[in-house]
């Protein structure tokens, strides 16, 4: 337990505390998007429509910030650990791989937690959206659980092993996924065939779960199953690719 806590502490230091420029950028980008879409591009909307738009867009940007933290940060950090031979170092020590990955996941979830809280604070203090504290906490907790598949996707992307390929994959995944999931603008503005694809995505389904919660509508079990299924599929893919890479001699 001691080494687990120590390793997690070091992970916090190297990924967040000693990497301030990245941290600030990672936190600010979704906030800037949120302010842009709720303060600048919303002229002409009635007060009621604006409130609804701000609330829905809060969910979108909370999930988008977790996409950045979950996919981009995870993949780049794990890739960095591979190129600096830290993963090889870990695999030769008497600890399980689970310890390494779970310790990293705690850091990535914390990053997501901080960014979610910051966007909610902007929402409350700048856009004056009223959400009760228990509901806000519940939203954030559900959001964190829902972003575990995104962290798994980031870990999967890191297996591309080359920085250029990983960056390319991140760009191919993050922005299109945000768009087709309806995080940047309403999904019904897109063609039907694209909507069908978008509605299968875990980010769309997570947004549905959170919006239902926010609007006090029924729990969407289909969406929960969808997100869980994505987690299982991505985790299985990750394990299979790790095994295949080991067989091909791509040592750690």
């Amino acid at each position: 337990m001691h080494n687990y806590l120590f390793q997690t502490k070091l992970n916090f230091r190297r990924i967040i505390l000693r990497n301030k420029s990245f941290f600030i950028f990672d936190m600010l980008l979704p906030i800037v998007f949120y302010l842009l879409y709720t303060r600048v591009l919303t002229t002409g909307l009635s007060t009621q429509a604006l409130t609804a738009w701000n609330t829905n867009y809060l969910i979108s940007m909370v999930i988008y910030s977790c996409m950045l933290g979950g996919i981009v940060t995870t993949s780049n950090t794990l890739l960095d650990d591979q190129t600096s031979h830290f993963r090889l170092f870990i695999s030769l020590k008497p600890i399980s791989k689970f310890q390494y990955y779970s310790s990293m996941t705690i850091v990535f979830l914390t990053l997501n937690l901080i960014s979610s809280i910051l966007i909610c604070l902007v929402d409350i203090f700048v856009n004056h959206v009223v959400i009760s504290l228990p509901l806000l906490i519940l939203l954030i907790v559900i959001n964190l659980a829902g972003t575990i598949p995104l962290i798994t996707l980031g870990a999967l992307t890191s297996l591309a092993q080359k920085p250029n390929t990983v960056n390319l994959l991140n760009n191919i995944i993050v922005f299109p996924l945000a768009i087709i999931s309806g995080l940047w603008w309403p999904i019904n503005l897109m063609p039907n065939w694209l909507q069908k694809i978008g509605k299968l995505m875990p980010t769309y389904q997570l947004a549905q779960i959170e919006r239902n919660l926010l609007h006090h509508t029924n729990v969407n079990f289909g969406a929960i199953i969808n997100v869980f299924a994505w987690l299982i599929i991505l985790a299985l893919l990750f394990l299979i690719i790790i095994k295949l890479q080991k067989q091909k001699g791509l040592v750690e």
Partner: peptide, 29 residues
Amino acid sequence: KKVTGVMMQDNISLHRIKVKEIIELSRSY
């Protein structure tokens, strides 16, 4: 793994981790 020590061809060189921290991390296992 409890009774072996390994020095591979490639050096571990983590960014933003100090010498004393990596030694303490290694000891902690």
